[in-house]
Design a protein around this nucleic acid. Structure first.
Length: 559
RNA sequence: GUGUCAAUAGCUCAGCUGGAUAGAGCAUCGCCCUUCUAAGGCGAGGGCCGGGGGUUCGAAUCCCUCUUGACACACCA
């Protein structure tokens, strides 16, 4: 629903002004009405002062029988005041919240990208929730979404881990300590090889043996992958994230020659400094390297192979890649290569980059400093949620369940609350606060509504006719207007590929809702008004459910 | 060096497809639990919107330039 339409309808009466609809904007505050029409841009065309134009428009409009209650002309603006009771009644009885019908289009989203050789870290938090939220946005607008976790399961890191296992490890240790054991060997080996060139060669040899599926080494590799993947799936499951495909880099490592042959047939290939490249100088880009001088695959050629493979599997209309901003050039390059190769799907490829998290005291390293390791973050925020619940005066039936939802909310909130492109500072104490503008605040607001609705079940309102006049109260009408903005907000977030827009919307709605029920008692003695107010908070609740779901925020009955 | 992105309150961030007095949270200082959950609400203080030009009736918002910072720029991904 678009309430500006009410103003457009009235403006149709004007014949001499041309198109005015797109000049209508939200008023700055309630004292200036709901919408306004600044007349300054008309002044030059009409050779009259903005004040006179505003006066003329305000005087010539007839609002009898419309939903506009009052029009006034102030300092060159025409201010429109909606009839709040009428609008509220119409919105509350006609609001359609259902999601869009399937549109038959397929969008693949490549996100999360777990590197199985390393601990998951805070970067995955941002990437994963951003991807999941975009997936839900696309689904809301009728797309079929394929969630792809393009795992890092290839390269010398695995040679290093296996070398570490051979030097210090044993089966028992790996079986009991799992990922922690593997990480320990990896870190230990990295430290050792820094001072010993022979070890570097050893790691390279071992990764070659993995590629050749060496009968002794390959099973160890498979075990490493299995352990790391299980751990990744465990953590992602806690976060509520699940994927349709876990096909990784290793699957495409052997496709380099196919890719190079294909590009060669299109006349795109040249050799430079021993490496195989596609020259992109015509497009002001550095060359795209598709095969290393030693003949091995490189990320660009694996990405090209993966794109072709996915198109064959899913016939996608769009494919989104989520990575931090530093890979921007890489994506621009290989997208261009696919375009030059005449791939029909190349125009549907899109790189969604995002700013990085940095810790207050410096950079994030996944190899040292466990500070930003995902499993620690999850444990920390879960502990904290449990503590807070323990000390609450309000009695909660399922404290464990609530703590988990609060913890997850805090994690997704931190991934989504800042504009996608911006770098953000991640201060764990600040980020994991439960007060002020936070995920728990939003969840809390929702539970308050649930609480009121529960209490209202005791009332018999069946034969009561709603009295909407009480919804002219300022926060009440703000809520009505906000509900009407749901679809526009989701569309904007989709178009800008930025869920932070939805999060801001939820936050504003919660703030207004929180004020509303403190200022205005919902359940009082005036039943016709109670019924109207309940209709309002019920709609707000339903709108919040939809919007919360988009930003991966779960709701509960109480907290 | 070239390119991309950023700079708004003490801190973290909104606002940026131009419109009326620049917003919020945190932190600081007050006030409000006999009344639908105080993870809450109300109030106070706090700003050359990085600097300088330009476009416009009007600029935090658009353009140019400078400064500062982050990132990228061939065999890591």
């Amino acid at each position: 629903m678009n309430l500006k339409q009410e103003v457009y309808n009235v403006l149709k009466q004007l014949k001499d002004y041309g198109e005015l609809d797109n000049l209508v904007i939200d008023s700055i505050d309630a004292s200036k009405g709901d919408f306004c029409l600044p007349c300054f841009s008309l002044a030059k065309i009409m050779r009259k002062s903005p004040m006179m134009i505003a006066d003329d428009i305000a005087n010539s409009l007839n609002i009898n029988g419309t939903t506009i209650e009052k029009i006034e002309s102030v300092a060159g603006y025409v201010n429109f005041f909606l009839n709040k009771a009428k609008i509220s009644e119409s919105v509350l009885n006609n609001f359609n919240i259902s999601r869009n019908q399937p549109n038959g289009k397929v969008v693949c989203i490549d996100y999360c990208s777990v590197n199985l050789a390393k601990y998951m870290h805070i970067g995955h938090l941002k990437n994963s929730f951003l991807g999941e939220s975009l997936a839900r946005l696309f689904e809301n607008f009728g797309y079929k979404v394929v969630r792809i976790n393009y795992i890092g399961d290839y390269g010398t890191p695995y040679g290093k881990i296996i070398a570490g296992i051979q030097m210090w490890g044993n089966d028992d240790d790996i079986n009991t300590r799992g990922i922690d054991a593997l990480q320990e060997y990896y870190v230990k080996f990295c430290a050792a090889e820094a001072e010993d060139e022979n070890l570097q060669q050893l790691a390279r040899d071992l990764s070659k043996k993995i590629e050749d599926k060496d009968s002794e080494i390959y099973p160890i590799y498979q075990k490493v992958i299995e352990i790391a993947r299980k751990e990744a799936e465990r953590l992602l499951d806690i976060l509520g994230l699940h994927f349709d495909s876990w096909k990784g880099e290793a699957s495409y490592a052997n496709d380099v020659n196919k890719v190079v042959d294909m590009l060669d047939q299109k006349g795109l290939i040249s050799i430079s400094q021993g490496a195989t490249i596609v020259d992109l100088s015509k497009f002001d880009m550095p060359p795209c390297l598709v095969k290393r001088s030693d003949g091995a695959s490189i990320y660009a050629s694996r990405d090209i192979a993966a794109a072709i493979d996915r198109y064959n599997d899913y016939k996608f209309d769009k494919m989104l890649y989520l990575t931090a901003v530093e890979q921007k050039l890489h994506f621009a390059q290989f997208f261009k290569v696919l375009e030059l190769a005449g791939m029909p799907f190349s125009s549907g490829l899109e790189h969604i980059s995002y700013g990085r998290f940095s810790l207050p005291n410096g950079k994030i390293s996944s190899r040292r400093g466990k500070q930003a390791v995902l499993v620690d973050l999850i444990d920390y925020v879960l502990d904290k949620a449990n503590d807070v619940i323990k000390n609450r005066t309000f009695n909660i039936e399922n404290p464990k369940d609530v703590a988990l939802k609060v913890a997850k909310g805090v994690l997704s909130f931190n991934a989504l609350n800042i504009e996608r492109n911006k770098d953000a500072i991640f201060d764990i104490e600040r980020a994991f606060s439960f007060e002020g503008e936070t995920a728990p605040y939003m969840q809390y607001t929702y539970t308050r509504v649930m609480s009121i609705l529960r209490k209202a079940q005791g009332l018999n309102l069946d034969n009561i006719i709603s009295d909407y006049s009480c919804l002219d109260q300022i926060q009440a009408f703000e809520l009505i207007k906000m509900c009407c903005n749901l679809n526009n907000t989701l569309k904007l977030a989709l178009d800008k590929r930025d869920p932070s827009i939805v999060l801001k919307y939820c936050m504003e709605m919660c703030k207004t809702l929180n004020k509303y029920y403190t200022v205005c008692k919902i359940l009082d003695d005036n039943l016709p008004q109670v019924k109207a107010k309940l209709q309002l908070i019920c709609l707000v609740k339903n709108v919040l459910s939809v919007a919360f779901n988009i930003i991966c925020l779960e709701t509960m009955e109480e907290m």
